[in-house]
Design a protein around this nucleic acid. Structure first.
Ligand SMILES: [Mn+2]
Ligand SMILES: [Mn+2]
Ligand SMILES: [Mn+2]
Ligand SMILES: [Mn+2]
Lengths: 223, 223
DNA sequence: ATTTAATTTTAGCCTAATCTAAAAAAAGTA
DNA sequence: TACTTTTTTTAGATTAGGCTAAAATTAAAT
């Protein structure tokens, strides 16, 4: 129950995000690659997190979060996303500049601070990348989402989130006119490379690669 | 020139504040007592700070800040005080609740963040305790100040700052009606214990101890 | 001027978080 | 199945920051 270090919090968050991908166990190497550290360091840390009952861990068998670990991760994610909203809404940062700053601010753990910040921001439900902000009990409001890459040609929808918060990706989206809330129609799917021809907001036609379309989440319009 | 750790930043700030008291050297024990750590730990850290040319240090001779150390300390203090303003002005914290939170937020060192925050707050010149906020070059705007304890009976002034940010002290000030900006007249000085009889805002009479009056700064009214 | 007391530094130990290299276990392949 | 490759863990170091106890230095007091 005692306070976690920034390193421990980053590990928990990484495990949470990997588990989000669907599988119910994550491997040492996956964690190492996500947080850019050695597998040996991950092994060490997993022992500590298991000791604190934040993860389920049996050697060589991969890890998952305990109830407590899941709840803790959601609190960290809550702080991260609230600060992201603050940086964009109040300090006028763009969505590709906030990642590293929020990555630090998230570790300032003062319950009253988080509640006041939430209130000050008007209890936002989604962060600037369209990701849901857990409430103080760890509850997520989720929108029905589908990857743009899985939308059939002819269908249209609204962009609700992005799966990747790297500056390179987000700056590219700015350039092609994609933003959270934009209307998008899939005009055509190119067989050759899986790329898509899109119509943004009913006016701008663009082609995006398969990799890009896999990292954009949309809510389908009833068709 | 590389980034400092939170611990190093806290030491620098402590040395800065001790030097503010007037003397031009501070001792190992003074630092240890201010940051609540052992003298041995301070000795260790002083070696590291000297190595990085942030302090002037000769064994057994006390320390002072180099030009670089002074500048660095002022940047940390700038962040601390800007966050304090944010917490009080925007998140509606009271001045006795912000110390520990700002103590953590000050270590998030992203130049653009600090500039945007400053701008967002309207470039405040003083923090909620009346302390001046350095600009981005480390320049302080100072008001002419005198300790309330040194104000002669019969004189009056305006409260501009407090020397102590402990919750205990600040809550006491709230209780007796003392706040930054209040008008204060020294009605009488009690010989027995050095306490003062004050008139706050021309209406409330209170007695404060010598210790309290030494921790309140006023700007004298022309008399 | 000695002796005593206080201050400061060093020595040695500890925990957290990282690394590389080696060993162990699991998974894949012939 | 037996061999090979990949993954994971352990072993052994390192750096940062802290501690206590002992030694060294400076300051204070006979
Ligand atoms: Mn982080
Ligand atoms: Mn985000
Ligand atoms: Mn601090
Ligand atoms: Mn202050």
């Amino acid at each position: 129950m005692k306070k976690l270090s920034p390193a421990e919090e980053n590990y928990l968050k990484a495990i949470y995000h990997l588990l989000e991908e669907g599988l119910e166990k994550v491997s040492t190497n996956e964690i190492a690659s996500l947080i850019q550290t050695s597998a040996a360091s991950v092994s060490d840390m997993l022992k500590k997190l298991a000791e604190k009952e934040l993860i389920h861990y049996k050697k060589y068998q991969g890890v998952s979060l305990t109830e407590l670990g899941d709840k803790t991760a959601l609190h960290i994610i809550r702080r991260n996303r609230l600060w992201e909203v603050f940086l964009v809404e109040k300090l006028k940062f763009s969505w590709d500049e906030i990642d590293t700053i929020a990555e630090e601010l998230e570790h300032v753990n003062a319950p009253l601070l988080v509640r006041r910040l939430d209130e000050y921001l008007g209890f936002p439900k989604f962060d600037p990348h369209g990701d849901p902000i857990p409430d103080e009990f760890g509850e997520l409001s989720s929108k029905p989402r589908i990857a743009l890459g899985d939308v059939p040609a002819g269908q249209s929808g609204k962009i609700v989130a992005v799966n990747n918060s790297s500056a390179a990706f987000l700056k590219y989206l700015d350039k092609v006119g994609v933003y959270i809330g934009a209307k998008v129609a899939v005009l055509d799917r190119i067989e050759f490379d899986g790329s898509l021809e899109l119509l943004i907001d009913g006016q701008k036609k663009v082609f995006v690669s398969k990799e890009v379309s896999a990292n954009i989440q949309v809510m389908l319009h009833p068709s």
